[in-house]
C-alpha cells in the first residue's frame, strides 16, 4: 500500500546570500567539537537563548553579549565517558540533556542550573544500550533501549528544578526504534522510525502503540525528523542519511510523506535532493525545523532546503579554516548554527 508520487522541481541554484553571518564563537579549549545546540537560559529574571557546545569531555554554555560577542557561562566536565550528542529539551529553561557513550549511547545525563542557589549540577537520567533519544516539549525525554531480550521505550519527565518525575513506558514494537519525532500540536502523539523502515505511532499518555506503517523498500534507513497532522493525514519529514545525487531524483536527502493512519497507506508528497555538483554517496548529518532542513554533506559544505518547495535554497561551502562538521537550527528563531571540529561555531540568519 505504499504509493510514490514524486514530482521533480527544477533547481534554480542555491543562494548563498540567504544565509547571513551574524556572529562567531570559538571555544579555544575545545579539542574536538562533537555537537552544538541552543537552550533557554534564565539567571537574573531575563530569559535568553544561549548556545551549547559539546566536545568529548565537556559541555559549555555561551551567553550572547553586545556587539556579536559570546561569553562562556559555565562548563560541565564529563571525564569518564565521551559525550556523543546534545539532546535539547525544546521549551525547557536551564535544563539540557546529553548522550554519552563510545560507539553507541550508554548513558543520558541531565545538565541543570539552579537560579535559587546559583549552582550548576549534573545527574544520571538513564543508562543501558540506548538506541535513540529525543527531548520533547514540557520537559520530557523519550528513549529506546535494548537488552538482549527486549526493547524498552520510555518517556521521562523533569520538574523545573531538574528532578526526575514518574516515567511512562510505551509499548515497544518488535524492531528497534532508531529515531523519534513529536507530532506537532498533538501533545500525546509521538512517531518513531525503525530499523526495518516502519513508522510507528504511539499515544504517549496511555503508552499504546497505535499503528505501524511501512515506509517503503526503496528508501532504506529512513530517519524521522518532524511530524504533523493535517486534514486527517499524518505528514512525516524523513531524511535518508545515505543520500546520493541522482538526476531521476530517486535518492533524495529529505522527503515529506503523507500517511493515512487509519489505512496505513502512504504517499510521497515532496522530496528534496542534493544540490547539483555533489556526486557520489553522501552521508548526511542534518536537522529539520518547520519547513527548513539543513545537513552537512560529505564535501564539508552545508546545504539548506525548503521542504515545501523541495528545493535547496542555500549552500555554505567549506570554510577556509576547514570543513563544516555540524549544523543545527536554533530553538525559536531562524538562526542556523554551523560548527567546525576545532570548536568554531558560526551563527547565520536564514
Amino acid at each position: 500500500h505504499v504509493a510514490e508520487q514524486l514530482t521533480p522541481v527544477p533547481l534554480d541554484g542555491p543562494k548563498e546570500e540567504s544565509l547571513q553571518l551574524l556572529s562567531k564563537l570559538k571555544d579555544s579549549s575545545s579539542s574536538c567539537a562533537v555537537d552544538v545546540s541552543t537552550m533557554w537560559w534564565e539567571a537574573t529574571g531575563s530569559r535568553e537563548l544561549c548556545v551549547v557546545t559539546a566536545c568529548e569531555s565537556s559541555v559549555s554554555i555561551w551567553k550572547p553579549l553586545a556587539s556579536d560577542c559570546w561569553a562562556k557561562i559555565y562548563t560541565w566536565e564529563l571525564a569518564e565517558i565521551p559525550v556523543i550528542q546534545i539532546v535539547p529539551l525544546p521549551d525547557a529553561c536551564n535544563l539540557v540533556c546529553i548522550a554519552l557513550g563510545d560507539l553507541e549511547i550508554g548513558e543520558i545525563r541531565l545538565l541543570h542550573y539552579s537560579s535559587e542557589n546559583d549552582s550548576f549540577k549534573q545527574s544520571l537520567v538513564k543508562n543501558g544500550n540506548i538506541k535513540a533519544v529525543l527531548g520533547l516539549k514540557d520537559r520530557r525525554l523519550v528513549s529506546s533501549s535494548r537488552t538482549t531480550q527486549e526493547q524498552q521505550v520510555e518517556v521521562l519527565s523533569f520538574s523545573e528544578t531538574g528532578r526526575s518525575k514518574d516515567g511512562q513506558t510505551l509499548m515497544a514494537p518488535e524492531e528497534t526504534v532508531l529515531a523519534f519525532a513529536e507530532v506537532e500540536w498533538m501533545r500525546d502523539a509521538l512517531v518513531g522510525t525503525t530499523v526495518v523502515n516502519s513508522i510507528v505511532v504511539w499515544n504517549v499518555k496511555t503508552g499504546q502503540l497505535l499503528k505501524k506503517m511501512h515506509i517503503g523498500y526503496s528508501y532504506p534507513a529512513s530517519i524521522c525528523h518532524r511530524a504533523y497532522s493535517d486534514s486527517g493525514l499524518l505528514f512525516v519529514v524523513l531524511s535518508h542519511p545515505h543520500a546520493k545525487e541522482s538526476e531521476s531524483c530517486g535518492n533524495p536527502a529529505f522527503r515529506v510523506v503523507a500517511f493515512n493512519p487509519k489505512t496505513a497507506r502512504s504517499m510521497g508528497v515532496m522530496f528534496s535532493s542534493l544540490p547539483p555538483g555533489h556526486p557520489g554517496r553522501q552521508y548526511l548529518e542534518g536537522d529539520v525545523k518547520d519547513a527548513s532542513a539543513a545537513a552537512v554533506l560529505t564535501s564539508g559544505a552545508i546545504a539548506v532546503w525548503d521542504l515545501l518547495l523541495g528545493q535547496c535554497t542555500a549552500l555554505l561551502p567549506p570554510a577556509p579554516e576547514g570543513d563544516w562538521a555540524l549544523t543545527r537550527w536554533a530553538t525559536g528563531s531562524t538562526c542556523l548554527l554551523a560548527g567546525q571540529r576545532d570548536g568554531t561555531v558560526c551563527l547565520y540568519r536564514y
Binding site: 504509493a3 508520487q5 509499548m171 498533538m186 500525546d188 502523539a189 505511532v201 499515544n203 496511555t206 499504546q208 502503540l209 497505535l210 499503528k211 497532522s229 486534514s231 486527517g232 493525514l233 499524518l234 503523507a258 500517511f259 493515512n260 493512519p261 487509519k262 489505512t263 497507506r265 502512504s266 504517499m267 510521497g268 508528497v269
Partner: peptide, 23 residues
C-alpha cells in the same frame, strides 16, 4: 497529493486508534 489513493480519512484518527488499540 491525491488523498483518494490513501483510503478513507478520519480527522479523529488519533482518538479512534486509541480507542481501538490494545491498552
Amino acid at each position: 497529493c491525491n488523498g483518494s489513493d490513501l483510503g478513507p480519512i478520519s480527522l479523529n484518527w488519533f482518538e479512534e486508534l486509541s480507542a481501538e488499540a490494545p491498552p
